[in-house]
Amino acid sequence: MAEPRAMDIKDQPGFRSIAVICLLVLYVPVLILMIFSLNSGSLVTHWEGVTLGWYGSAFRNEEFHAAAKNTLIISVTATIVSTICATLAAIGMTRVKPWRGIAAAFMVINLPLMVPEIITAVATLSFFALIAGTLGLNFGIGNLILAHTVFCIPFAYMPIRARLEDMDLTLEYAAADLYATPWNAFRRITLPLLVPGIMSGAALAFIVSFDDFTITQLVAGPGQTTLPLYIWNQIRRPMTPEINAISTILLMVSILFVSVSFLIARRRAK
């Protein structure tokens, strides 16, 4: 309001209401889902009173434990592997003279973002079926970890690369001028400056792995139920607010990691 005239030229009638409507549309259904996780009645739709009981019953539920354990094994491993690979790749594609095939390499890294998830899902399923059939190879839950690592790499890669490109190169040159070996220059200068990018990338990789449903559903073998698969199995039975409680936990994990990634990125911008 300090510059009424400047605000005025930017204004377009009705845009504010549409923005508010969008926000309501995005949040109201999810908020209702969360509120009903506190419902003391056993029906998903009839409100009877407030309780935390459904969270208690979720935490006591053996199937939920197993699913949570699988999810964590898969997403933590996929996050670590994909973040390391993405960091190396980002350095190998920014701190070099453009090499022949760099454009193709960039496309390969980003491929999982361009192919619709259902195609990746059936392709990965076919691949693991083929190597199980011909080579007798079955990595068990490793199948899911590998599948997740593939699509986590580009998500981890993006913020790390952005950070490398924003970085002030003179610091690295200064280190080289002061006779730092390339490895020392990397360890003492580049890497510390890169940490926020790596954290932000790892957070995104973790979320996409943690939340994945489509690829997991098609690739998962028996006993490899993850939390999204567990929710899907519950939907097809008569539902209790326990499903709302578990959904709320999943949403909270996403919100936490997005906010962390967002705050790191914002501090960088300052």
Binding site: P29, V30, I32, L33, L204, I207, V208, D211, F213, P228, I231, W232, I235, I243, S247, L250, L251, S254, I255, F257, V258
Partner: peptide
């Protein structure tokens, strides 16, 4: 944008 699509669809 980053929240679980399955859960959002359930909502």
């Amino acid at each position: 944008f980053w929240s679980n699509l399955l859960v959002r669809t359930l909502a």
